[in-house]
């Protein structure tokens, strides 16, 4: 008997995934977004294979080379190949985007599920604290944290992650409130399951749809915020091949070498575009009620 139950549960899970995939597949824009995102991930993974040059090796004989066959995106003031730098930049952006979102997601799940499940004073304290963080615009909060922590990839992730927690907490809390009233929660309480077990095994698992959507969307906004931070000199520092810091380094030369700012910017745009399209599609597929 338990075997059959387990099998049917497994089957149901597969069916749900299949349903989501079917619905996602119908949305051509979302599929295009997914393809762009997968392409970005592949570029990041195989950066060493794709990049024709070392992104950090200077070639002072070939500075400010216009885009040509040897250097597809041209070379910068140090003669570094821009194409290789853009390709390697995908690694940093993806690393920051995904890690920040995971940080925000974990923080949000912990705080949001505690607030939603326990309610009353616990909820008031947590949610008011989140309101305070939300009163400071995201980029500014990240900038202030960076000013204290100092620059670098790790600190960028931490600063943006802290800024992402309040939004995740709100999403998780409202999802938990929706799930909490269900009979299976009451049943779990009746058989004496601990609060920890109820939250982790029943509540979080059943509130996953909006959390997944928020995480996907957050990867895009985190990448954008990280490149912004690097652009104003607070995030990832040169000479690291990162799109924002590449733009910042190319700024003094835009009068004569406009191509230097073109490609890193296009890379950021394509990444955000793909992730947004995919995120929108995923939201529609996972929860038709949120369609608008």
């Amino acid at each position: 008997m338990p075997d059959i139950m387990e099998n049917s549960a497994e089957l149901k899970k597969q069916n749900q995934l299949l349903e989501v995939w079917k619905s996602l597949k119908k949305n051509r824009l979302a599929v295009f977004g997914l393809c762009l995102t997968i392409l970005l991930i592949l570029v990041a993974i195989f950066a060493d294979v794709i990049a024709p040059y070392d992104p950090y090796s200077n070639d002072l004989a070939n500075t400010f080379c216009y885009p040509c066959r040897a250097h597809l995106f041209g070379t910068d003031n140090m003669g570094r190949d821009q194409f290789s730098r853009v390709v390697y930049g995908a690694r940093i952006s993806l690393l920051v985007g995904i890690s920040t979102s995971l940080f925000g997601m974990i923080g949000g799940i912990i705080l949001g599920s505690i607030a939603g499940y326990y309610g009353s004073h616990t909820e008031t304290v947590i949610m008011r604290a989140m309101d305070i963080f939300m009163a400071i615009p995201g980029t500014l909060l990240a900038m202030s944290i960076m000013a204290v922590l100092g620059q670098g990839v790790g600190n960028t992730i931490l600063a943006l992650g802290i800024g992402a927690v309040p939004r995740f907490t709100r999403v998780v809390r409202s999802a938990v409130l929706g799930v909490k009233g269900n009979e299976y929660i009451e049943a779990a309480q009746a058989i004496g399951a601990s609060s920890f077990r109820i939250i982790t095994k029943y509540i979080v698992v059943n509130s996953l749809a909006p959390i997944i959507v928020q995480t996907t969307m957050n990867v895009a906004s985190a990448i954008l915020a990280a490149t912004s931070l690097s652009f104003i000199g607070l995030g990832v520092q040169p000479p690291t091949a990162e799109w924002g810091s590449m733009l910042s380094a190319a700024r003094p030369y835009i009068r004569d070498y406009g191509f230097l700012v073109l490609y890193p910017g296009l890379a950021i745009m394509a990444t955000i575009f793909g992730l947004n399209l995919f995120g929108d599609g995923l939201r529609d597929a996972l929860d038709p009620r949120l369609k608008n």
Partner: peptide, 16 residues
């Protein structure tokens, strides 16, 4: 869609 994906600082540089 393009407007929401374009980083404002890059768009500013392009305008300049």
């Amino acid at each position: 869609l393009i407007g929401t994906s374009m980083p404002s600082f890059w768009f500013g540089l392009m305008l300049i």
